[in-house]
Design a protein around this nucleic acid. Sequence first.
DNA 1: GTGACTTAAGAACCTTTGGAATCT
DNA 2: CAGATTCCTTTGGTTCTTAAGTCA
Length: 913
Amino acid sequence: MKRDPNTTPKVETNFNHLVIMGSLSEISRDAVGKLLRRANKVGTYKKKTVVDFEPELNEAQLLESILLPKTSEVEHCSRNSIANDSAEEKCGHVSLDQGYMDNKEELDDSDWEDGTVAMDDHPMTIELNVTPVSSVQKQIRRASAEDKELAELVHKVHLLCLLARGRLIDSACDDPVIQASLLSLLPAHLLQLSNVTKLTSKALHPLISWFHDNFHVRNRTNGEKLPHFALASALELREGSLEEIAALSVALLRALNLTARFVSILDVSSLKPGQSFRPIASGSSKGIFNTSTPMVSKQKLDFKSPKKSLSSYEREKPCESSLGQSRKRKKRRSTSNMDQSTDPSVAEDLNCSVTNSQTSEPQDSNQGGSHITDESHKSKRKGDLEFEMQLEMALSVTAIDCSKSKVESGANADSSNFSCPSKRMKRVIGEESSTSPQLISTALGSMKVGSPLYWAELYCSEENLTGKWVHIDAVNSIIDGEDKVEAMVAACKTSLRYVVAFAGQGAKDVTRRYCTKWYKIASQRVNSTWWDSVLAPLRNLESGATGGVIHSRTNQITATEANTNDSFVPTRSSLEDIELETRALTEPLPTNQQAYKNHSLYALEKWLTKYQVLHPKGPILGFCSGHPVYPRTCVQTVMTKNRWLREGLQVKPNEHPVKEFKRSVKPQKVQGFEAEDDDCTTDSKENIKLYGKWQLEPLNLPCAVNGIVPKNDHGQVDVWSEKCLPPGTVHLRFPRAHVVAKRLEIDYAPAMVGFEFKSGRSFPVYDGIVVCAEFKDVLLEAYAEEDERQKAEEKKMNEAQALRRWYQLLSSILTRQRLNNRYNNSLASELSIDVQCMNDNVSNAKVCGSNDKNKTHKHNQMDKCDTNLEASLSIPVKDHEHAFLKEYESFDEETSLLTKRCQCGFSVQVEEL
DNA sequence: GTGACTTAAGAACCTTTGGAATCT
DNA sequence: CAGATTCCTTTGGTTCTTAAGTCA
């Protein structure tokens, strides 16, 4: 992963930060890497990856493949990106087709119903022979473990991306230029807020209403700007995306020297597979269709098929609203009594961004018009776009080199794409400046709202006794409306799974503050261990930036006592932790029974599993449909004696099973009809007896005495864990340990570590032996020796085998040569060349074992062969019989080698025995 | 529209101690 | 001949989870 050379200094700063927080960047890399590897493997997961990944794709390309959705939305593509896209799409199609052919049989109707397969260049007709009735009864395919794993990986990576984005926005809020510009716009009387020492939420009303009147949400694309510039641009125009306006409100609060956080709902892809990602703010399609006040004319809805009209409607909506907004905007501008001139210094800075957004405007509307015609084959979902954008931004932060794999289509997209419903909510709720729940519900009824996604949290030292973080939604002009957030989000058919507050480059999960029904979202969140480890470094940064020692009224009174008696100094962070924890423990009782099934705090007896009991059975916390509600802490897991044994625990004497149920014994197939008669006897024979944790004591195994290992009925020791070892024994996990133990006549028992299931039967799995502790060293020593000896023997055997093979090879060559010489066949010359080539290699090969004192005739013979071969290969083959004359012989006394020579130059070395 | 309940299907979990043939 | 090693074959019942349908 290389750093992108194109990243701006701002991003680099962030990256450096990430590097400092090693753990987080590691987690990011790990999660993204896993996803990429996983994606590489998965080619058949249809809903998420229609493109069949090519194995030779590199990571960047692969990422692109994931991100490049099946279709693309023309309106957000730059000219360049369109060209690139089409090229890429072509590639995509090749593999898509391939993938389709490969997995043809796996594709079911639902794939086509999704309508996400892009066939841009090839018009296609799909003939459906099915009747409408049968198409309704589509095949339900449950998600496999693999699908779940992939969904979880995507979820995690998406979370990391959103976290990274939040940090970028947060750092943009700290920008001194933006803050100064905001202050310069602020009427003088509101500036006094910065001098207020005892801040309450009431004091904020004038400020927030001024902000709300002067900054507006609008749907626009602002190119590839970084949050920093996007924010500046929004400030310049006094309008921007939901995110930008919320961020500006945070910047304003910070400019006034107040402690503020940028809060965002991390609207992340689902943890469960098969659920297509739909950003909250875009509203659910179901909701839109249920609305009684459609936002577009009926004609547009009448579009071929209901399915088609759904998607077209979804896509048209933003355009229409965008146009509407621009009209509204003009009106607003002309009537606005606010000073239209802006700070010249800021204007200078922002010049380019302003032109950017201005030029993007007509383009926007043009494309809006054209995309209706193109939509039949360009239907990239907003969620996909958002995901791409976030992933890209996060990757740039974590400096993954994705410059080549830039998802061009996504780059132009902006969070404002999906902010228009929220903007409408603002009109409805904000303009009437009322926050009554009734009004919200009216707004929701007409589905003119999106969900609040971003807001601010301000620390008010005079709220409560110790101070409090106050929810401030400047976009909707809501102050201290934390209890309304959940209802607003729920109205959008989603839930707030992750609400994260950003400050000082850090982040903190504050979901608990906004969520009253934790049981509903708990299952939709990633496992808390992972999430906590991700947030740990960010939490520190956050509390470093916002935390401070509390000097509340109560503390001031007891300040001296606290200093002397208690070392605990409450910080904002720790007090908030307590507040959130308290919320977690005081959740109201759910009204529906099924909510108790996996509730973390409460339980109903009827929803307990087979291996759960209530102990103690009380206190009763309340009732749900007549069923008593118990605390979850009373739910205990019960197990059989054997299962507890594995945990290193045994049932105390005289304890009766707390739960008992009949084991259903299936009649043995072999016995056939005999078993039918046995039915009642087998049933009564064995009941499964379960015991609770309170009935147990530590395992009391017989000790090893006199070097004898206590064994079970099978003459072995069950080693489920170290706890199961009899006292005074050790588990030696090396192979062939029993051989050594047996040789040394040490008592041992095979260690059974589990079972393996094969062909319907279970077989014990052994690993090493169990011996008395006193023999451990002796055995290890002996084993080391034995090991060494065995290795030496192995080596010797290898060498001998090598010798044998050499001999075999050489003699076969020789035989061949001899045959050639004798019969002088036509292949002779060819062979000689072949053999000549081999000569270099073979003659250099040193034949081992020739120094062995116990030289056998075989070895001797081999040596002969060796030299013979050398000689025979070194001379050209002729029709000639060697004659070894005595006078050419030489004898080397040192090596006892007799060298015989022929006149032709051929020589043979012979070792005398 | 909501929730209780049923049904159905697939995933996940639990079960828990050979024997014949061949090689060394 | 004894002991070690390899090969054979590839369960099936129960519970949990999830989604859809029905009904009050």
